[in-house]
């Protein structure tokens, strides 16, 4: 469990990093927090020619509010996001989810950009990015573009970024007043990979029926899975227990097609998806209703 030899670069600016990435292409790997990359290198599952270490680029460590959005630099540590009052105020769902990510020691080192770009289908942040309709700012040496989270995730450990592109920043739109939200997951042990997780964001329309709802699962597909059929069942309905139950059943039955692994077979994952959908939808609807009353 020793990595193969690699070149190591510690650029001080984004431009320098992008030049290196342009130079190495697929043979270069970006080192952010290293919490996933380094173990795979130790197993020699990944043998990059070079590591481009972003830890020395100060411009990638930031959290700020910009036009009702939370802007988060790619190298911002997960632990900082977890503890940020700004995050709690603008995107409370993100705040609430952070403690579910691995263990505190890992969050101390792990970064927002690293987790988003790694695209692990059991990770919390990619699912959350979709639930919150986040946008990714990516750059190559020559180009820059914004990609919506829904277009960013394309498959197992795969994003729509090109090999010479790097994620620099993510923008999370603030949750409007009157919306409700919730996140839950089931892992075999606290801090371990989730067998299934679910995030929900709900807006209630005038009169208390569901206006908009986004329900996203993790751990039940090759990428985060948005439960569109469940959402369409719920929109326009009063958020009663029965309606939520029906939507959750639909989510588990129709919206996902999980494969099993050693920890959870397809049937159990489906069961958990139904349980979690019901829990997060209920909580999100309650919160939305609570906001409305205020």
């Amino acid at each position: 469990m020793k990595p193969a030899a690699f070149d190591y670069h510690a650029p001080r600016t984004v431009e320098e990093a992008l030049a290196l990435l342009w130079n190495y292409g697929e043979d270069g790997k970006i080192l952010a927090g290293g919490q996933s990359l380094v173990p795979t290198m130790n197993f020699r599952l990944t043998q990059p020619t070079a590591l481009i270490d972003l830890n020395g680029i100060e411009g990638l460590f930031f959290l700020r509010e910009d036009d009702d959005e939370l802007r988060c630099g790619a190298m911002t540590r997960q632990r900082e996001v977890e503890r940020s009052a700004l995050v709690k105020r603008i995107v409370p769902l993100l705040h609430e989810t952070m403690p579910h990510i691995a263990h505190a020691q890992i969050r101390n080192r792990g970064t927002i950009g690293g987790s988003l770009a790694h695209a692990d289908p059991t990770a919390e942040l990619p699912a959350l990015a979709i639930a919150l309709d986040a946008s990714m700012y990516v750059r190559s040496f020559t180009e820059a573009r914004w990609i919506s989270a829904r277009d960013y995730y394309v498959g197992l450990f795969t994003t729509s970024m090109q090999p010479d592109e790097m994620l620099l920043e993510v923008a999370f739109p603030g949750l409007p007043a009157g919306s409700g939200w919730a996140f839950e997951e089931v892992a075999r042990q606290k801090g371990n990979y989730a067998m299934c997780g679910a995030a929900a964001v709900v807006d209630l329309a005038e009169g208390g029926s569901v206006g908009n709802v986004t329900l996203v699962f993790l751990g039940v597909g090759e990428a985060p899975v948005e439960a569109e059929q469940a959402a369409s069942l719920l929109v326009g309905e009063k958020p009663t227990a029965a309606a939520i139950r029906a939507a959750s059943d639909a989510a588990a039955k129709l919206d996902i097609d999980p494969v099993g692994d050693i920890h959870a077979g397809p049937a159990f994952r489906r069961h958990l998806a139904g349980v979690l959908a019901e829990r997060v939808l209920t909580k999100a609807c309650e919160r939305a209703a609570g906001h409305e009353r205020q």
Binding site: V186, R188, M195, H263, A264, G265, A267, F268, H271
Partner: peptide, 8 residues
């Protein structure tokens, strides 16, 4: 046992 096995 496991949660999965208990479920089954």
């Amino acid at each position: 046992l496991s949660p999965n096995r208990l479920f089954e």
